[in-house]
Structures are given as structure tokens and as C-alpha cells.
Design a protein around this nucleic acid. Sequence first.
DNA 1: TAGATTGTTAATCGATTAACAATC
DNA 2: TAGATTGTTAATCGATTAACAATC
Lengths: 196, 196
Amino acid sequence: MACLREIEASQGKGQIVSSETLAALAGVKPTQLRKDLAYFGEFGRRGLGYDASELAFEIKRILKIDRIVPMILIGMGSLGTAFARFIITRANLEKDYPFRIQAIFDKDPHKTGTEFMGVRIYHIDDLKHMIQTLNPIIAVVAVPSQVSEPIIAFLCDHEVKAILNFAAPPTKIKPTKTIIHNVDLGAELEFLSYYT
Amino acid sequence: MACLREIEASQGKGQIVSSETLAALAGVKPTQLRKDLAYFGEFGRRGLGYDASELAFEIKRILKIDRIVPMILIGMGSLGTAFARFIITRANLEKDYPFRIQAIFDKDPHKTGTEFMGVRIYHIDDLKHMIQTLNPIIAVVAVPSQVSEPIIAFLCDHEVKAILNFAAPPTKIKPTKTIIHNVDLGAELEFLSYYT
DNA sequence: TAGATTGTTAATCGATTAACAATC
DNA sequence: TAGATTGTTAATCGATTAACAATC
């Protein structure tokens, strides 16, 4: 599936767009775009094209961002702060932005009990009894790699659907029900260096 | 090319390893690993395997991380700070870590003139006359998206080989000589949401 | 009806894997 | 020589693209 996100933002209400136009915007071939969409259903009308707002809605539904996605953030170091700022700013700016940070967890007593841009910061120990109530779909792990593995294991045990992990990939656990997406800043640099 | 980085860390001096062992470590098929390596040259010995330290050296050479890679960081908000901490910590810990932040640039007069973990923070206006001297291979852009495009354009004009861009992808410029690698935290979340 | 554009089948391309000759 | 393991050629698989019938 080639990048469909670009499409969403690109047209107003009631507008009809062709796969040709959309493909140009997304930087892919029209035929690829049509094939990708057809995989999920028939969203277009032959001879006409796609209804832009209808298509945007369908794409949101496919990506499961047609609803509020409750999240928790664990670790409020510089990376956690950067991530929280990014998400909360966007949620404040964009109507219907789906991702919401419900609670932040950290170990530092200088941070716990305070708020960051309107989101409460709890002690990491409170996660144990709060996770049931919060019931987050996604958890973001931005703690040091040395302490990340037990936290990730705990999250997997408690039915979190997906983890965005900025720490080192866990070595011991191989969860079946939880998807872990590892983001490795160091690897991004090595990747770039190769193409230098 | 499947992930070769794992291999590097995995063996001591003088050790011989087979593609079977390495593939298991990297989580790929042995035949895939051999094919990838063969693309760059003949590094193994038939009937024996690969010399681990020799292979590690060759991989570093291929990735161009067998030398110091000078970098600059532009933008010292929470994301810039997170990135700087990540790189500098690693450079302090790991012998031969190739990436070095030579200078940081920001607009905030409270930050300019100070140091972060031993790296000087300059005003963004100083970039103009300093870039020639610094001559960085890689530039990391961690400024707000609204102000990123002219900065990226400037970096491309001044022979920076690669840009790691945390801001929005540039729309106007299509550099030919500079590689831009865009990292989109929002897209990572949408990606995860889909697999929920 | 003629023109346009989708959804889908067929053809092409590239990447992964299997098989094996080379060789330690 | 027999066993092991690479580098490479051939076969397989999947993904991309082209072609076209369906239909607005």
C-alpha cells in the first residue's frame, strides 16, 4: 500500500477526483493507487472518479483513525517531551485529530503530579493500577533502553494493542497480540550515511 | 539489503561465523544474507565462513561509518535536545561511534552562546558563514515546519550530503545532490493504528 | 453514442529463495 | 577424500505496471 495519507488533505467537499490526480499528489502511479484502494473495497465510480470527502472518510476508517485513539506516554525525558508536544499541539490545532494522550508516566518526582500542556504526569508505579481504567489502544515508550523491557512486557500483558517504542527493541519478549513498532534514531543516521 | 547492523556487534576477534549463524541473529534467511554481502564483494571463505572482525570492518566501510561523520544540528527544541542527547551519549559511551555533532544552531538567545553536553550552540544566523568551515556531511533539521524550508534549501545549496529532517517534507525544493530523509512521527502513529 | 475512468485480469519486473558448482 | 559453506545461477514468489472490459 503506497502512501494514502496525502490524499486525505487534498480536496474539499463534494469534489470528484481521478486516480490520476490523486496519484500525482501522492507521487505514485495511478494504477497502483487504484489497486491499493480496490483491495479495501470499491470506493470510486467508473467513468467519474472518487468522491474526495467520501474517500477521505473511507481511508480514515481503514486506518482506524475515524475515532479517538486513546494513548499513554511513558517516559518524559527530552524525547517524551518532544513527542508529547508534537501530538498535543496537533490535537489542539487540527479538528478531528484522532490521537489523544490520556496520561503521562515518569519516575522523576519533580515531574510527577504536574501537568504538561494539560496532560497529567503520574508516577510510573501508578501505571499498574491505572492501566485498566485508561485502557489505551497505543502506548508510547520513551524511557531509557535499560529500563524499557519490563515496561514493554507489562504493556503487552495488559492488552495494549500497539506500542511505539523509542527504546531498544525488546530481546526477551515476543508478544503475539501486541504490535511493537521500533523507532531507532541511530539506524536512521546509518541509513543516511550509506547513501552519502 | 536486509539489516546488516546486527551482525557487527555479534562476534569477537578472530572468530569465524557462518551465514547460517549470522542470519539467525539478524532474523533473515542465510541465502539472503550471502546474496546481500556478495553484492558488495567476496568477504567470506568457501567451506569456512566469514571472519567476524573483517566482516564488521567491511560493513562499516560500506555504510561509510569507518570514519568520523561530522554533523550539525539545527533547532534545539525538545526534539533537537532529545536527538543531541541521544547522539552525544552514544559517542561518549561507544568507542568508534562515528557520528559527531560539531555545532548546534538555534534562534533562541537564551540558548545561543551556551553549550549542550560539550557542544556549542550558535545563533541560526551564524550558520551562513560557519557552514563552509564546518563542512558537515549530515545536517539534522529539528526546527518547526513553518521555518524549515528555507533552511533545508540553504543546506542543499551548501553541499551538505544528507539531511535528516524531522520537520515537514519540503514542498518547493527537489534537490539532486542532497539526500533528504524525512522522519514523520505522526505517520508512525497512523501506521500503528492501521495494524491495531 | 462517445469520452472518461474505474476495478480487475494479464504481463512484467524485481526481489527472495532454492539449488548447486566452486573451494576451503 | 569427505564435510562444510561460500558465491552464483536458476526457480519461485510477490509486487508493480500495463491493458482492457465494465460502466458512468
